[in-house]
């Protein structure tokens, strides 16, 4: 069964089209990822699927229910971790979790057990009775995720869930999510900026300017990049870029601190290139393609370009709030 089905979905904010006629479906038990730069329309899509926003045109079904016509049934089928914090900072961590469990109708016996479980995963067990407003950004994020994993819905939406968290925590959370998927058959709908996180997905949709530009498994997507990736830099990257195109006929791409080309056989290509460009190249590296390269190829942009360091995003996200304190 298709647990999410989206047909010709369009969302306009006044005149601005945030989601531009997208189509996709997600199978039960799948981990489905949305990958895209800032403003691509990822969160907007999630808000429509979770009945927080009305759509402009098209159809969207969740667990077989029309998101426009049966919002109550849709809400009973989903769980969410929003991109921005939705905790009540004047309550304790435990109160936040218990209220969530009550809103979702989990019996006390069950939620008490799960509470311990999720708290351990996010390592907040010893802080349960502390007011959330005294938490650090990362701790709030962890609590938010813990809360999102308390009940076992049909579909869990995770909107950039682990931004600002360290690798260890991220992998523990992912372990738990995969386990939920196996034991409870939960479907995961994820948006992310992290490439390693995207690798957790069964399938990925790359979205840019409100349109899906590619949708496939991570492996298949990577095949779109034909060979090895060679990244290089010179004192004048613009000049290097032009020479690669004009003198070598290569499909070069400007990236943040250099120039990048795709080539079938990197190991032999590099010595040739260096001998033909004496004193030009100051740095060169070779690697296998990643999702970021696919992204670059499809959208002409690097994902990481837009990605501040995780901590900075966290700060930007929380900065708006601190004014009220």
């Amino acid at each position: 069964m298709k647990v999410i089905e989206v047909n010709n979905l369009v969302k306009k904010y006044n005149d601005f089209t945030a989601v531009n006629n997208i189509n996709f479906s997600v199978d039960e038990g799948e981990v489905f990822g949305f990958l895209g730069p800032n403003g691509a329309g990822k969160s907007t899509t999630i808000k429509i699927l979770s009945t927080l926003l009305t759509l402009t045109s098209g159809k969207a079904y969740l667990n077989g229910y029309d998101v426009q016509k049966e919002p109550n049934k849709v809400r009973s089928s989903i769980g969410l971790v929003f991109q921005e914090t939705t905790l009540d900072e004047r309550l304790t961590a435990k109160e936040n979790l218990v209220f969530h469990a009550m809103l979702y109708g989990i019996p006390k016996k069950i939620y008490q057990k799960r509470l311990q479980q999720v708290l351990e995963i996010v390592e907040l067990t010893d802080r349960v009775d502390t007011l959330v407003k005294t938490f650090s950004g990362g701790m709030k994020r962890r609590l938010e995720i813990a809360r999102g994993l308390l009940h076992y819905p049909k579909v869990i939406f995770l909107d950039e869930p682990t931004v600002g968290l360290d690798l260890q925590t991220r992998s523990r959370i992912w372990e738990y999510i995969h386990q939920l998927r196996k034991t409870e058959g939960v479907t995961i709908f994820l948006t992310t900026h992290y490439m390693d996180e995207a690798e957790n997905c069964n399938r990925i949709a790359i979205i840019d300017n409100g349109k899906i530009v590619a949708l496939n498994t991570p492996e298949k997507l990577k095949e779109r990049v034909s060979g090895d990736i060679v990244t290089m830099a010179s004192a004048d990257n613009n000049r290097l870029y032009k020479r690669l195109i004009n003198e070598f006929g290569l499909e070069a791409e400007m990236i943040k601190d250099g120039v990048q080309v795709e080539t079938a056989k990197g190991e032999t290509f590099i010595p040739q290139l260096i001998s033909k460009l004496p004193n030009e190249i100051t740095y060169i590296s070779l690697r296998k393609p990643t999702l970021n390269d696919v992204f670059l190829k499809l959208t002409g942009r690097e994902i990481r370009e837009e990605l501040l360091d995780g901590k900075e995003i966290m700060r930007a996200r929380l900065g708006r709030r601190s004014r009220f304190k």
Binding site: R75, T86, L87, H100, L103, Y104, R321, F324
Partner: peptide, 17 residues
């Protein structure tokens, strides 16, 4: 305030009328 601080969203997507 709840809207501004985000908590309202948590309530609005919950399966309660």
């Amino acid at each position: 305030w709840d809207r501004e601080f985000g908590f309202l969203k948590e309530v609005l997507v919950a399966p309660v009328p």
